[in-house]
Nucleic acid binder design. Structure first.
Lengths: 231, 231
DNA sequence: AGCGCCAGAAAAATCGATATTAATCGGTGC
DNA sequence: GCACCGATTAATATCGATTTTTCTGGCGCT
């Protein structure tokens, strides 16, 4: 089951997936995008009407999300969206740097032309989505980053990276997603990463990637402390 | 919810935990200990009678286990115990070395006397359990290893380590648990680790720990190839 | 006035039954 | 004789109702 990975263009109409699957994706989106706030209680009955489905698929989807740290379960007391904190944010950033760095190096170490092309393609698609201002830019953005790592040959590592990516992006949504991209030339950063990766320059690519993350991280961290101070 | 962590001595009689919780723990034990073989189908109806509970708790527990890679879900086709493979085993070992190494170094870097005492205690309990030949030696063994890492101050990292520990120990059970311990002085290895950790010798402790894992890993890998060859 | 306690309401957890989907087996046409 | 198709069977996925459990607000007691 490839949960945790990006769903592609299948978001059409005749989605024949199971109710659990749909519920899982919807709930996850609600939490990651901040439509459901950290710590907010997730009442089964409420979700039942909101998502137009029975209690079983909802509970199942919530159980899935529990193991991914997006939802917390308190025995006999229901579910709530995972809380956020500065410590949590810092740890996610740190772990991402460690694990994605590792994955990227391995990916490049066993680079092939197929992978190279996949990366170029993902980068292009991301650029296109950004231009259109579509909401699924974030999906393409994740796809680009995951494609960079995809060649590492370590499925568990990839899964961890994907999970951490989602946990991190949630903070970006919570801070107001637009802000981040306006103040920096993220496109340039992506091009740098792409270029070094294609050039098989592991050290350079890793440095660019981590720089990319750390800059975003510092930006968000500032914003968080500013918000905390304002309260 | 502290799933993934060792349940203590609460395995008595009046277990008032929820059915989902109990089912989760039972199922997990069945899979980790190899009572349910890799790839084996997990039929709801069968489990319902075996675990004396309804379908809902079982599905929920299976969903939880899915996110932990102990169970695979095939949409519309039910659940099965996660398959095993040499590649999977190797990756688990490798990831454990990376992540536990990281965690141990941090744990030692911020060592306190409380932590030191906890580690000594866990080690002692493990020794006691080994002597009695109780089945819960494995629990104490995990407790010892997790206590070593517990001081790292990184909950997500810890959770990853715990998950990987379970995935790994499953292979040990599958290979026949007893074999491993008979051929080496594992007690000595544990003492070495303990000693260096208490002495705040991060490099030494890490080296011992990884050596401990790699030796076990090599042993199991040999066994796996031997078994494969015999078939 | 403060504290604990009890009843009623709300929510979670669980069960049993139904609808849906995949697997199986036997028959039919080529 | 073999491959394909359709009905039967088995199992999953989902729903609706019931049973526990927790939460809330008000009452009586000290």
């Amino acid at each position: 089951m490839d949960l945790g990975v990006i769903q592609v263009g299948s978001t059409g109409s005749g989605n024949a997936a199971s109710a659990t699957q749909r519920t899982y994706l919807s709930l996850r989106r609600l939490i990651v995008t901040g439509a459901v706030k950290p710590g907010e209680k997730l009442k089964i009955e409420g979700l039942r009407t909101r998502l137009q489905t029975g209690a079983s698929p909802i509970r199942e989807a919530l159980s899935l999300l529990t193991s991914e740290h997006l939802v917390e379960r308190i025995d006999q007391r229901g579910f709530r969206a995972a809380p956020t904190s500065r410590e949590n944010f810092d740890e996610i950033l740190e772990m991402r740097c460690e694990l994605e760095g590792m994955a990227l190096r391995r990916s490049i170490a066993s680079a092939t032309e197929d992978w190279e092309e996949a990366v170029v393609l993902a980068h292009h698609r991301m650029g296109r989505a950004a231009g259109k201002g579509t909401d699924n830019f974030e999906d393409e953005h994740k796809a680009f980053h995951m494609t960079l790592l995809a060649n590492c040959g370590a499925p568990i590592l990839l899964r961890f990276c994907s999970q951490l990516y989602d946990l991190n992006i949630r903070y970006r949504y919570l801070a107001g997603r637009a802000l981040d991209y306006q103040k920096r030339d993220v496109g340039q950063e992506h091009r740098e990463i792409l270029e070094r990766a294609v050039a098989r320059d592991a050290d350079g690519a890793e440095a660019e990637l981590l720089g990319h993350y750390r800059r975003t991280g510092a930006f968000l961290a500032d914003l968080m402390t500013a918000q905390t101070a304002a309260e």
